[in-house]
Amino acid sequence: MKAMVQDSYGPPDVLELRDIDRPEPAPDEVLVRVHAAGVDQGTWHQVSGLPYLVRLVFGPRHPRVPVPGLDVSGVVEEVGARVTEFRPGDEVFGIGKGTFAEYTTAKTVVRKPANLTHEQAGAVAVSACTALAVTRGVEAGRRVLVIGAGGGVGSYAVQLATAAGASVTGVCGPSKVDLVRSLGAVEVVDYTREPLTGQYDLVVDIAGGRPFPVLRRLLTPRGTLVLVGSEEGGHWLGMGRQFGALIRRPFWTQRLRAPISIVRRAALDELSALLADGTITPAVDRTFALGDVPAAITYLRDGHARGKIVVTP
């Protein structure tokens, strides 16, 4: 099969399109023929090996799994000996092991809703599960601010908070204003032209760089600040804002959260129901061919993506 393979960590061009052996599913896994695979910041961490802390998971010197990619949507080709829920021909989506390939093995998958294309379903798992975690507990009538509303996690966070009955303000760049408004935000702030004002019950800051005092001023006295992702902290830890939040939390009247999202079956089941009834819809910007994964990652890192981007073999 064809796959994008890396022998070492580095910039996106360390990836090469090669012919490799098709993987074999473990007893509790399925083999999926990949129709679409999402690209997110986590895949950049896989490829770059940065910050170095992530190498404890991916491999200290070189990637343990040479094919990157996590999100997947496709068709079950083969099932492991202990799998009873799926059979060949089933359409599924979720998390795979090296999804920038024609085939991948997967354990955490659910059936794809019939109203979604594979391109849409392939853009769900990582970003939507993260958004589900950060918006958990949002109540009707609350005011929610999503900073980074035009990206992968942000586009789902806007929809999930809106579905819960919250009044959502989205913050994004000028090219994403129309998208964020279409997702349900009652107000959209172009951060290049307008300052952030007002007070909110929940502020979701996605990979932002605003100082903590600025973010606190946007919170009600009992509001909650949620930090998602961070590029601060250097090449070693890369979690400067999260550690800063832990230090400050005992001294704040407001609540501070920096959740680590793990894609679990229960979350995928919940998202599948919301997708099936149209409560949320994946916002897919562009589709790249398998051999163009380096370009897809670069496009993402340059901040161009409006919502999600996917790769199709």
Rank of each mutant, 00 (worst) to 15 (best):
D13Y: 05
G137E: 07
D190W: 08
G208T: 14
P25V: 13
S230G: 15
A161P: 01
I247N: 09
L246S: 14
V189Y: 03
H235I: 14
V72Q: 00
A114S: 14
P259D: 05
G89S: 08
D190F: 01
G10Y: 07
V34G: 04
M1P: 07
D71K: 01
T104G: 00
K107Y: 09
L56F: 13
V83S: 02
S230V: 03
L179G: 07
L202S: 04
P211H: 12
S182M: 10
E187T: 12
G49A: 02
A157R: 01
A121D: 01
N115A: 12
V39I: 12
L218M: 07
G42T: 13
P294F: 12
V204K: 00
T117Y: 05
G141P: 07
V124E: 03
V180C: 09
S167M: 02
R241F: 12
I206Y: 06
L202C: 04
G69L: 02
E29W: 07
K107A: 13
G165H: 04
G238T: 12
D277C: 08
P195E: 13
V138Y: 00
I247K: 14
P63H: 01
V134L: 08
L145C: 00
V177P: 09
L219N: 08
Y191R: 15
V171G: 07
R181H: 11
A295R: 14
Q120S: 01
G94K: 08
R143A: 01
G94V: 11
C172D: 03
V284W: 06
E139N: 08
T108A: 08
A26L: 15
D285T: 07
G94C: 03
V310A: 00
F243Y: 15
A267W: 06
L183A: 02
E77G: 10
L256E: 09
T192C: 00
D269A: 13
H35N: 13
I147Q: 01
Q199C: 05
G148C: 04
